[in-house]
Design a protein around this nucleic acid. Structure first.
Length: 317
DNA sequence: AACGCGGGGCC
DNA sequence: GGCCCAGCGTT
C-alpha cells in the first residue's frame, strides 16, 4: 500500500492544474452558496446543478431570503433536479440557520449535522470547502479513489462503515486538507470514474494498488440502482411536474386535484385551452397511473409536504 | 442494514 | 436497458 505522503503531492499538483471551473468555486462564494451547491449535488450530477445553482443564488442569496420565500416558488425553482424533498429540507435548513444561528452557516460538523437535509457527507463538505476546517469528506468519488489506490479494490463497500471513515480520516493531511478533499473528489469525478477509468491520465497510476494489480474486476456487485419505469417515483415525479407547470401558468388549483382534473379519464373540454406544457404533464400522468395509484401517491405527497390538499384541490405548498 | 426517493445522460 | 450520479432520512 502506498504511503499517503507520496500520494498527497501528486493529488495537489494534479488538482491545481485540472480543477473544473465550477460556479461555486468562484472566489467570494458565501458559505451558504457552498451549502446550497452541496445539497443540490446530492445524487444529482454537477453538470445539471451548475445552471440551477446560479439562478437560485441570484434569487435567494442568503438563508434569510430562502427562509422567507414561498415554498411553491422554491419547488418550481428546484424544477427537475430530482428528489424535491431536498428542496423542502433546504428551505427548512435556511430557516434553522436564520433562527438558530443568526443567519450564519455554522462551521462545525456537529452543528451542521443538526440541520435538516445535512448528513455526514454534506456536513464534512461544508466544514471543509466553505470554512476550510479540517474534515474527512467521504462521497462516492473519494471512497472509490481511496479504495482503488490504497486497498486495490475496484469499488468501495455499499455501506460506509465507521472503520472506513476512521481509515480515511488518517489519510487527510494536516496542511492543504481542503485541496486534498477537493482534489481527490475531482480525481474521482474526472479520471478515476466508476466505469471506464482513465488510468493512463491518472497522476497516481504508478502508486495505485488496483492499477498495479492489473485492475482486477470486482467479484460482483448487487444492483445498486432501482428500476425506474413503472415505479412510484416516476409517477410522483410526473404529478409534481403537473403542479409546477400549472402553478407557473397561473392556473386555478381546482384543476389540479386528481379527481377534479380527471387525471385518469379523458376530459377534452377541461384540457382544451390549457397551455401545452400543462396538457403534456397531465397526459403524462394519465399514461403512467391508474386513479387508485394516483390517489395513493397524492396522499403520500401531501404527507411529505410536497403538496397541499384543501377543499378537494391540490396545489404546491 | 435496507429501503424509498428523480431524473437525465451515457454506454 | 442498465448504470451512474459531491446522499439523506426512516424503519
Amino acid at each position: 500500500m502506498p504511503v499517503a505522503s507520496a500520494v498527497h503531492p501528486r493529488v495537489l499538483e494534479w488538482f491545481a492544474d485540472n480543477a473544473r471551473d465550477l460556479p461555486w468555486r468562484t472566489p467570494g462564494t458565501s458559505a451558504w452558496g457552498v451549502l446550497v451547491s452541496e445539497v443540490m449535488s446530492q445524487q444529482t450530477p454537477m453538470s445539471r446543478v451548475a445552471p440551477k445553482w446560479e439562478a437560485w443564488m441570484a434569487t435567494w442569496p442568503t438563508p434569510a431570503d430562502l427562509a422567507a420565500a414561498p415554498t411553491s416558488e422554491v419547488l418550481i425553482a428546484w424544477d427537475s433536479l430530482g428528489y424535491p424533498r431536498r428542496a423542502l429540507r433546504l428551505q427548512e435548513c435556511a430557516r434553522a440557520i436564520t433562527e438558530r444561528h443568526d443567519g450564519v452557516v455554522p462551521s462545525t460538523e456537529e452543528e451542521l449535522l443538526a440541520l435538516p437535509g445535512i448528513g455526514s457527507y454534506t456536513a464534512a463538505a461544508v466544514a471543509s470547502f466553505a470554512h476550510r476546517n479540517r474534515a474527512t469528506v467521504l462521497d462516492v468519488n473519494i471512497r472509490r479513489v481511496l479504495s482503488r489506490v490504497f486497498a486495490g479494490v475496484e469499488h468501495p463497500m455499499a455501506a460506509l462503515s465507521k472503520k472506513e471513515t476512521a481509515w480515511a480520516a488518517g489519510l487527510v493531511p494536516t496542511h492543504d486538507h481542503v485541496e486534498w478533499n477537493a482534489g481527490v473528489m475531482e480525481l474521482g469525478a474526472l479520471v478515476c470514474t466508476s466505469r471506464s477509468p482513465r488510468c493512463a491520465e491518472c497522476p497516481l497510476q504508478d502508486l495505485c494498488v488496483w492499477n498495479l494489480a492489473g485492475r482486477p474486476a470486482a467479484p460482483e456487485r448487487k444492483p445498486r440502482t432501482q428500476s425506474w419505469a413503472g415505479t412510484d417515483r416516476q409517477l410522483r415525479g410526473a404529478i409534481m411536474k403537473v403542479l409546477r407547470t400549472a402553478t407557473t401558468a397561473g392556473l386555478p388549483t381546482r384543476l389540479l386535484t386528481a379527481s377534479a382534473l380527471d387525471l385518469t379519464t379523458t376530459d377534452e373540454e377541461t384540457l382544451a385551452g390549457l397551455p401545452a406544457p400543462v396538457v403534456a404533464a397531465v397526459e403524462r400522468v394519465r399514461d403512467l397511473g391508474t386513479a387508485d395509484r394516483i390517489d395513493r401517491l397524492v396522499t403520500d405527497l401531501v404527507s411529505d409536504g410536497l403538496a397541499v390538499l384543501e377543499d378537494g384541490r391540490l396545489r404546491l405548498p
